[in-house]
Write a protein that binds this DNA or RNA. Structure first.
Length: 423
RNA sequence: GGGGGGAUGCCGGAGCGGACGAACGGGGCGGUCUUGAAAACCGCUGGCCGUCGCGAGGCGGCUCGAGGGUUCGAAUCCCUCUCCCCCCGCCA
């Protein structure tokens, strides 16, 4: 959510920045400012009446019985006028809230303008795609042959875009999770297993509602939403709280199952487990001082790269373009890993600086001498297990169909599971 | 699922229609005293919004779990919702 006060004072920079996402947003800002003007106008009138009412009420309590009746009669007038104005104010208020809630975070100047992921800008490439002396298989062929992946049965039980992970893939998942936690906790991240069913406030606060409503599962009887990422419950953790500056930056690393409807992705990535409705993910989340988030953003990215490098994956870092940014992000880096099965780089992680956008919606502030301010929030994928399994299987496959597990995971695996050889 | 009790400021806890933004205690901050500290004493100490002012700040509104209602006036009365606690049932 934007800061309405500063937007009033100087709308142009925000309009310019938002236009880089979508030129139509400039007009939305104008509509918002108009609604805000009306709201404040009514607000002044209502507050004046209320002040009169408050003064009058005190007078009533002090008045003699004789004066009382007349005073009450004149206050009744005030009360009636308030009854007329208040619904108008409520309406104006609602208009402002809706318009404000729909505006996305203005992108940072360094974000490239573009419409789709095709327009993302490559920041750097790290590692070299492996040269196989044979035709590399994709993760579906590898996984099924190794007996660690069963998609057909998942389709029978749950429908498309689901999978069973079996045997060594399960061990591998625990190893990946431990590897990430062991790397991140010394950097100050506190491990968290959060709720994955959340209320509307958390979904709104993180910016997934209203924009991404179509991609969120909702429970029918309890009005709870299934989180598509633990970013949601991790951001909601300090909802409505005022944090002390000494406690920042505050770093959490969540582990949770994630649920996504993938509406609008029909026909896209239908093979395998690249895009599924349910997967497990280790997610970093930071709360920072308002002036420290850009530094933290680079830090989170460096953590992601450390993990990818440790696992021996060739990857590139891309600066995600305006059209591909989520509503709450001011800037986002994706790490795209090389997938030999697809012969291209695909998104493995993403890392967003949401600046004060989520914090303002969530009411998470930091106590400062002049005035309390919204903190900045950031999130970054440490390991999306499903996609990481794809990358590991495809990059570390050998001619005989076996897969070598990277050394960094060996401490977490029994010796016989350090090379996947299948049944 | 059935029955009962609650939700007040950073924390504890009073108030149960009229000077209540809220007693009292604790904590925190500042000061006096002290070589320093403790103790004692004194003072300060919620959030949000609007408005005026270049500014320090002034004025006003809202806020006693949330939203409605009654009333000239609600922390206090009524309704709905949310959450917490206790008992019974069920249960990983």
């Amino acid at each position: 959510m934007l800061d309405l006060k500063s937007l009033r004072e100087d709308p142009e920079p925000v309009k310019t920045a938002l236009s880089r996402r979508d030129p139509a947003l400039s007009a939305d800002v104008d509509r918002l400012l108009e609604a805000d003007r009306r709201r404040r106008e009514l607000n002044v009138q209502v507050e004046e009446l209320r002040a009169e009412q408050n003064r009058g009420s005190k007078a009533v309590s002090r008045a003699t019985p004789g004066e009382r009746e007349q005073l009450i009669a004149s206050l009744k007038e005030v009360s009636i006028r308030l009854d007329e104005l208040q619904p108008q104010l409520a309406e104006a208020d609602e208009a402002v809230t809706v318009l404000l809630g729909r505006l996305p975070n203005p992108p940072h100047d360094s974000v490239p303008v573009g419409e789709t992921d095709e327009d993302n800008v490559v920041v750097r490439e790290v590692g070299v795609p492996p040269a196989f002396g044979f035709e590399p298989k994709d993760h579906v062929d590898l996984g099924q042959a190794l007996g660690v992946l069963d998609i057909d049965r998942a389709t029978k039980v749950a429908g498309s875009r689901f999978a069973y992970l079996l045997g060594d893939a399960v061990w591998l998942q625990w190893a990946l999770v431990r590897y990430c936690l062991d790397m991140l906790t010394p950097k100050g991240f506190v491990p968290v297993i959060p709720p994955v069913l959340v209320r509307e406030e958390a979904m709104f606060g993180t910016g997934f509602l209203p924009t991404d409503e179509a991609n969120i599962y909702v429970t029918r009887d309890d009005e709870l939403y299934l989180a598509g990422t633990s970013e949601v419950p991790l951001a909601g953790f300090h909802q409505g709280e005022i944090l002390e500056p000494g406690g920042l930056p505050l770093r959490l690393v969540g582990y949770s199952t994630c649920f996504r409807r993938e509406a609008g992705a029909y026909g896209k990535d239908t093979r395998g487990i690249f895009r599924v409705h349910q997967f497990d993910k280790v997610e970093m989340f930071s709360y920072t001082m308002p002036d420290a988030s850009w530094e933290e953003h680079e830090f989170l990215l460096s953590c992601e790269e450390e993990i990818a490098r440790g696992l021996g994956l060739p990857y590139r870092v891309v600066n995600v373009c305006t059209g591909d940014l989520g509503a709450s992000a001011a800037k986002k880096y994706d790490i795209e890993g090389w997938l030999p099965g697809q012969q291209r780089y695909r998104e493995l992680t993403s890392c967003s600086n949401c600046t004060d956008y989520q914090a303002r919606r969530l009411g998470t502030r930091v106590r400062l001498p002049e005035a309390n301010q919204p903190v900045h929030t950031l999130n970054g994928t440490a390991c999306a297990v499903g996609r990481m399994l794809i990358a590991l299987l495809e990059n570390h496959q050998q001619e005989d169909g076996s897969v070598r597990v990277p050394d960094v995971l060996h401490p977490y695996l029994p010796e016989e599971r350090r090379v996947l050889t299948g049944p």
